[in-house]
Every structure is written in structure tokens, then in C-alpha cells.
Computed example of a mutant assay.
Amino acid sequence: MKYFIAAALVLIIGALASAGVFMMRDGRDGKPKTSNMMRALALRVGLSILLFLCILLAYKMGWIRPTGIPIER
């Protein structure tokens, strides 16, 4: 589960970085083309929602559990 979460976070950051690249690259010709940037941002939002739902499902199924900070006496 740790590797799935790490891979999902890398994909989310990659989608955000590609949206930034598209934002900087588009519009140099005088014609704004934001479809690539919007598609990358939509992918990022979709991946974030999917990751949240997977973490929620894993918690409900008992695959992961919160550990918290141990109380020392």
C-alpha cells in the first residue's frame, strides 16, 4: 500500500509539473492554447480523488490503520 500511495503522489506531482510546462509553453505564438494545461490539471484532480477514495477504502477494509503518536509515560 505504501508503494501505491507513493506512486500516486509521484503521478500527481508529475501532472502538476506538466500543467506548469504547458502553461509556460502555450501562448508564445500569440494564440493561447490551454487545452493541454486544462487536461493535465483535470488528470491531477482525478488522480487526487482516486487516491483519497483508495485510502478511504483501504482504511474501511482494514488494510491500513492509523497509528498516531505513542503516549510515553
Score class of each variant (00 low, 15 high):
residue 1 M to N: 12
residue 2 K to C: 05
residue 2 K to Y: 01
residue 3 Y to W: 13
residue 4 F to W: 14
residue 4 F to D: 14
residue 4 F to R: 15
residue 5 I to K: 01
residue 5 I to C: 05
residue 5 I to S: 03
residue 6 A to L: 11
residue 6 A to S: 11
residue 7 A to N: 02
residue 7 A to T: 00
residue 7 A to W: 00
residue 7 A to G: 00
residue 9 L to K: 06
residue 9 L to M: 05
residue 9 L to E: 05
residue 9 L to N: 07
residue 9 L to T: 03
residue 10 V to D: 06
residue 11 L to H: 09
residue 11 L to I: 10
residue 11 L to E: 10
residue 12 I to N: 01
residue 12 I to L: 06
residue 13 I to E: 13
residue 13 I to G: 09
residue 13 I to V: 11
residue 14 G to Y: 01
residue 14 G to A: 11
residue 15 A to I: 00
residue 15 A to H: 02
residue 15 A to D: 04
residue 16 L to V: 10
residue 16 L to A: 15
residue 17 A to G: 03
residue 18 S to K: 05
residue 19 A to T: 00
residue 19 A to E: 00
residue 19 A to P: 00
residue 20 G to Q: 01
residue 20 G to T: 06
residue 20 G to H: 04
residue 21 V to C: 02
residue 21 V to Y: 01
residue 21 V to R: 04
residue 23 M to Q: 09
residue 24 M to Q: 12
residue 25 R to T: 05
residue 25 R to S: 01
residue 25 R to Q: 04
residue 26 D to W: 04
residue 26 D to M: 08
residue 27 G to Q: 00
residue 27 G to P: 02
residue 27 G to T: 01
residue 28 R to W: 09
residue 28 R to E: 07
residue 28 R to D: 02
residue 28 R to G: 05
residue 28 R to A: 09
residue 29 D to L: 07
residue 29 D to M: 07
residue 30 G to S: 01
residue 31 K to Y: 10
residue 31 K to T: 12
residue 31 K to C: 08
residue 32 P to E: 03
residue 32 P to F: 02
residue 33 K to Q: 10
residue 33 K to F: 12
residue 34 T to L: 04
residue 35 S to D: 05
residue 36 N to P: 04
residue 37 M to T: 01
residue 37 M to L: 03
residue 38 M to G: 07
residue 39 R to C: 03
residue 39 R to D: 09
residue 42 A to N: 06
residue 43 L to P: 06
residue 43 L to Q: 10
residue 43 L to D: 09
residue 43 L to Y: 11
residue 44 R to M: 12
residue 44 R to A: 07
residue 44 R to T: 08
residue 45 V to L: 08
residue 45 V to K: 12
residue 45 V to P: 08
residue 45 V to H: 11
residue 46 G to Q: 03
residue 46 G to I: 00
residue 46 G to K: 01
residue 47 L to T: 02
residue 48 S to G: 12
residue 48 S to D: 05
residue 48 S to C: 07
residue 48 S to V: 06
residue 48 S to I: 08
residue 49 I to A: 08
residue 49 I to D: 08
residue 49 I to C: 14
residue 52 F to K: 04
residue 53 L to I: 10
residue 53 L to Y: 08
residue 54 C to I: 13
residue 54 C to P: 10
residue 56 L to W: 09
residue 56 L to H: 07
residue 56 L to F: 10
residue 57 L to A: 14
residue 57 L to E: 08
residue 58 A to L: 15
residue 59 Y to W: 15
residue 59 Y to D: 14
residue 60 K to L: 14
residue 60 K to D: 12
residue 60 K to W: 14
residue 61 M to V: 15
residue 62 G to S: 05
residue 63 W to T: 11
residue 64 I to D: 04
residue 64 I to N: 05
residue 64 I to M: 06
residue 64 I to Q: 08
residue 65 R to W: 10
residue 65 R to F: 13
residue 65 R to M: 13
residue 66 P to C: 13
residue 66 P to R: 15
residue 66 P to V: 13
residue 67 T to H: 12
residue 67 T to W: 12
residue 68 G to M: 06
residue 68 G to N: 13
residue 69 I to T: 15
residue 69 I to F: 13
residue 69 I to N: 13
residue 70 P to H: 11
residue 70 P to W: 11
residue 70 P to M: 09
residue 71 I to R: 15
residue 71 I to H: 14
residue 72 E to N: 13
residue 72 E to L: 14
residue 73 R to E: 13
residue 73 R to Q: 13
residue 73 R to T: 14
